[in-house]
Every structure is written in structure tokens, then in C-alpha cells.
Amino acid sequence: MYMPSKAGKYGLLLRTVADANYRYMWKLWPYSGRPTEPERSPPATYFESVPEMVKYMVEDVAGTGRNITMDRYFTSVPLAEDLLADQLTIVGTCNKRRQLLPKELTEASGREVDSSIFCFRNDVTLVSQCTKPGKLVLAVSTQHRGPCVDSRTKKPEIVLYYKASKGAWT
């Protein structure tokens, strides 16, 4: 894969599903580029969309009630609803350019630092946290149901859970 922004311009792109607590890799999918003839390529070598790839990656754990933590490239509200139908919850950061996000969540103008706005749709919770002037963190969860904010750090519980399950330091 060609990555012009990196020091080493070429590298491997691997998508993985892993257990965050035990560092156990469940499934790995190497990206090998777009095939010249997708209809003739072997199954699971090319996906038309990101949600299609995510569903393939988690098909073995569907129906188990587990939580899937994902970053902004994978997270969307329709995917969250689809995975919830398969008895999988998600927590993930979200790109503010995604469709179906209310304007109030994606604009930082006029927001106080450490303020959080929650939005609820069906069983999906969205939160927009203003971390710095002009900077927002958007998160989506089907695991969290209420507007919980930690009183000490002033961070939403969804963001704290995301950081803990991604192996990040809080």
C-alpha cells in the first residue's frame, strides 16, 4: 500500500479483530488492492464497502453479546444498528463528516471546553465532546444508554471506555 504521508512510503495494510484484554488476535485480513476482476476473485478478498468488511470480520462472534471497539474509519450509525441486530454492541470514535450526524454535534463554534452533547437514536448513543477550542471528539456507542460524564475528568463515559478498550492510557 502506498502511503505518501509516512516516512517509509510503502507498507502492508492489515485489518485485525483482537481481544483488547488478552492481546489475542481473532481474525486478520490483509488488503491486497482492488482486483482487476472483482466478480472472479475468491470470496473475502475484496469488499465493496467498509461495513461489508466489518461484518465479515466479526461474523464468527455474531450473537455472542460481545462489544466491538473500532476507530473512526469503521464507525457509522447504520453499521452500529446492523451489528446491534446481530447482538453485538459497538463503541467507537466517529468522523464528523459521516452522514446522519446532527449539525449540533459536528460544529465546534460556540462550544465550551470540556462540554459534552449527547444524542440518542433507537439504541445508539452519540456524544460530542469539545476537548479544546475548535476541536471535537465524536463517539458512538450501542453499549451505553445514558448521558454519563465523569465528574473528575469531565469526559463522557463512552470516551473513557473507548480509550480503555483500545489499550490507550487515560
Rank of each mutant, 00 (worst) to 15 (best):
Pro35Asn: 05
Arg15Asn: 15
Pro30Thr: 04
Leu83Asn: 05
Ser116Cys: 15
Trp26Lys: 13
Tyr24Leu: 14
Lys55Pro: 01
Gly11Gln: 03
Val58His: 00
Tyr24Ile: 14
Pro102Asn: 09
Ile90Cys: 07
Glu37Asn: 12
Ser128Asp: 08
Asn21Thr: 10
Val113Leu: 08
Arg121Tyr: 07
Thr106Leu: 07
Met53Asp: 04
Thr131Pro: 00
Val149His: 02
Thr125Gln: 09
Lys132His: 14
Cys148Tyr: 14
Met57Tyr: 00
Leu79His: 09
Thr93Ser: 04
Pro102Val: 11
Arg40Lys: 10
Leu88Thr: 13
Tyr73Gly: 04
Thr69Ser: 03
Cys130Ile: 02
Lys132Tyr: 08
Ala85Trp: 06
Arg111Glu: 10
Asp114Lys: 15
Arg40Gln: 09
Thr75Gly: 04
Thr64Asp: 04
Phe74Met: 06
Asn95Glu: 14
Gly65Tyr: 06
Val91Tyr: 00
Phe47Asp: 01
Cys94Trp: 07
Ser76Gly: 13
Asp60Thr: 06
Ser109Cys: 14
Pro4Ser: 15
Tyr56Ala: 08
Gly65Leu: 02
Trp26Thr: 07
Tyr31His: 02
Arg66Ala: 05
Thr69Arg: 00
Leu14Met: 10
Ser141Asp: 07
Glu112Asp: 14
Arg97Ser: 12
Met25Tyr: 03
Cys148Lys: 08
Lys9Ile: 02
Leu100Pro: 01
Leu101Gly: 06
Ser116Pro: 11
Asp60Trp: 00
Thr64Arg: 15
Trp26Tyr: 14
Gly11Pro: 07
Ser109Leu: 13
Thr16Gln: 10
Gly8Asp: 15
Arg111Ile: 11
Asn21Lys: 11
Ser141Gly: 03
Asp114Phe: 10
Asp82Cys: 03
Pro147Leu: 08
Ser5Thr: 15
Met3Phe: 12
Leu79Lys: 04
Leu100Ser: 14
Leu84Ala: 12
Tyr73Ser: 04
Pro38Trp: 01
Pro42Trp: 02
Leu138Glu: 03
Cys130Gly: 07
Val61Phe: 06
Pro78Thr: 15
Asn67Asp: 08
Met53Arg: 01
Val50Ala: 00
Lys103Trp: 10
Gly63Lys: 05
Tyr46Ser: 02
Phe120Glu: 04
Ser41Arg: 00
